[in-house]
């Protein structure tokens, strides 16, 4: 099975405290630590496991800038066979549809049976996979937490729905699936793994290579645009307990007693 996995480089929520810049309209991006979108690691792991079982190859692709190459290398260190970076000034300011249109152009240059995305990324939209499928006229399932090959033309997938229930579907290939966390346990990537793929060639493709009309992507083609980042006035929020740890614990125990927690 030929599998393409779409991955995104995102600020790591576990490693950063997010602050606004001095103008108050964007994140202070100076010291942000970036990594691969959490969901995408599950998608790559799933692709590798499928290929281990039925043969084929895994390609990872991202739309981004020069720095996005590092996430491709990381996923190749996990075991993806190929990486492709889609990068062009014309792509800047793309909305979700722009990103999906760029990915579609690359997909049409290859021959993939299965395309995987993460269920969502840092912006929490969960949009690219479903758009891509509709643009390609492929069937789509979101929030997939189980994939079983039936034969060359059909797969059975489980979608995680409310309450942790699982909706089983039969889907014709080629198809696009968005992968939910927990579907597998993504393998660990060590420094040695990264070193092994450090010099592998990763092709970079721009709008021209992909035959993309620059007016349809990037800022020019975006119907949805981010205006700014801001901190809302949310009222008081929690009563913060302060002091030494002993003092905090004493206050907390009082409150827990009052509220029936003890």
């Amino acid at each position: 099975m030929e599998i393409l996995v779409c991955v995104k480089r995102v600020p790591d929520t576990a490693e950063n405290e997010f602050e606004l810049n001095s103008a108050g309209n964007d994140l202070d991006r100076d010291d942000l630590v970036y990594s691969v979108n959490e969901w995408d690691n599950y998608a790559v792991e799933e692709a590798i496991q499928i290929v281990d079982n039925v043969g084929g190859s895994v390609t990872v692709v991202t739309v981004g800038d020069d720095e996005s190459e590092e996430v491709l290398r990381r996923e190749m260190a996990m075991g993806a066979n190929n990486g492709v970076l889609l990068s062009d000034e014309a792509f800047e300011g793309s909305d979700g549809k722009g990103i999906a249109a760029i990915l579609k152009a690359e997909i049409e240059k290859g021959k993939y049976d299965l395309i995987l995305t993460g269920a969502q990324a840092d912006e929490g939209a969960g949009q690219v996979g479903g758009m891509l499928a509709a643009m390609l006229d492929y069937p789509y399932a979101s929030l997939v937490n189980k994939i079983e090959a039936v034969d060359d033309a059909v797969i059975k997938v489980g979608r995680e729905i409310e309450g942790g229930n699982q909706e089983m579907n039969e889907i014709q290939l080629p198809s696009v699936l968005s992968i939910q966390t927990g579907i597998n346990e993504p393998r660990y990537v060590g420094i040695r793994g990264i070193r092994k793929v450090a010099s592998v060639d990763i092709p970079v493709k721009g709008a021209g290579d992909l035959g993309i009309d620059a007016a349809k992507v990037g800022d020019a083609g975006a119907k949805t645009k981010r205006v700014d980042y801001f901190v809302p006035d949310l009222g008081e929020g929690a009563e913060m307990l302060e002091g030494s740890t002993d003092e905090i614990i004493e206050k907390l125990i009082e409150k827990l007693k009052a509220k029936g927690g003890l």
Partner: peptide, 23 residues
Amino acid sequence: HDTFGMDLAPGLSVKMDAAYAAD
């Protein structure tokens, strides 16, 4: 914006040729 909406809406926006905004 729930498990059904996430399944439906992005593709619907493509077929409607409409803008998309999530969550």
